[in-house]
Design a protein around this nucleic acid. Structure first.
Lengths: 189, 189
DNA sequence: GGATGTGAAGTCGTTCACAGCT
DNA sequence: AGCTGTGAACGACTTCACATCC
């Protein structure tokens, strides 16, 4: 909406776009503060900034990728990260020489692929706060342990495996096969 | 648990593994029928079969991949699909010759990459029921329209774009940047 | 004895409806 | 005049607690 030059938006419009109830939009926003103007609506630009601040997107998040296979390569070349203030500043694999050729040919911005035993050292050095696990499932917990040891507080886990971390750390799973199962269920009815 | 040779499992054990309440497990399962034995629990093997049947996983789901870039290649080589009764039986791109070399070198089972204008024809021929959209976001809706035209009822959308389909069709999004935002929010507090 | 299946109770989230502002 | 912010009503989901059955 900002790109389209729209200045103001109402909760009803937002609700429409998000396929939810208008009161829901207002309640959710009001939870974090008063962002709207009664009788008018929300200023698009201000709201965008406020939401970004609420979500913690008003800073650059430095991320480490662990596992540079097919999925890892896809993540490395995912340009949209940059628009969203996320940045992969280090990549690790158990066999860096093997993968480095494979990705360097594809990428504009080359990210060196380091051996996983350097995670702790490099994570501290580059102030990495989020780790992306893109290894085979069998290695996911081991990698998570390394990230915890390196005090990387947030983990986005793409490996189809349960990963547990201590209090104070957060794991979010991206299990697209679960979503596929959901789709299959819906199609079966 | 089946692989470990465990014969019986209680709702309490399942709840523990899933980090939910035991009554929740029982209610959810009971919604679909009576699968347990009072005083005993659930037979692992039977429960697994029942759940698979409920989810619609007791058949092979034939899928089409549209967009063979980095992410598409990753999906093509995602071997775990096979274990889960999902199978990519066709891949499409706007420029097949360009991508075919890139993926054939990596894959055991080669899947030919066809031009997108053949979706309808091939989808019918191969009885494809699920489409995987792995194109740039700008093309997502266009591809969805093609899939609808080909009567592919289910869509798993990996492109960060809103996709709408008519009644009777289902779209499920895999927006991992949304999950990343969630992670960033949790880390900001 | 012990775990399931399930009404009843409790909790949480959503929606309504309108007072309060601009 | 119109839209937000919000208490109150509503509805849905979760948990409790126990009757039921193996």
């Amino acid at each position: 909406m900002e790109e389209k030059g729209e200045k103001v938006v109402s909760s009803a419009q937002l609700a429409n776009k998000c396929m939810v109830n208008a009161a829901q939009v207002r309640k959710d926003l009001a939870y974090f503060g008063e962002f709207g103007i009664r009788g008018v609506g929300y200023f698009v630009k201000d709201l965008l900034n406020d939401i970004k601040r609420i979500l913690g997107l008003n800073k650059e998040w430095k991320m480490a990728l662990i596992g540079v296979g097919n999925l890892g390569s896809a993540l490395l070349s995912y340009k949209d990260f940059l628009k969203l203030n996320y940045n992969i500043v280090a990549a690790f694999d158990i066999d860096p020489p093997k993968v480095i050729g494979r990705i360097s040919e594809k990428l504009g911005k080359p990210v060196e692929v380091l051996h996983i035993n350097r995670i702790k050292e490099v994570a501290k050095e580059r102030k990495i706060e989020i780790g992306l696990i893109a290894t085979p499932p069998s290695e996911a917990q081991r990698v998570a342990d390394l990230l915890v040891e390196a005090e990387v507080k947030g983990i986005l886990n793409f490996a189809p495996a349960q990963v547990t971390v201590p209090e104070g750390y957060v794991v979010k799973d991206v299990f697209f096969t679960t979503i596929l199962d959901n789709l299959a269920y819906l199609l079966s009815n």
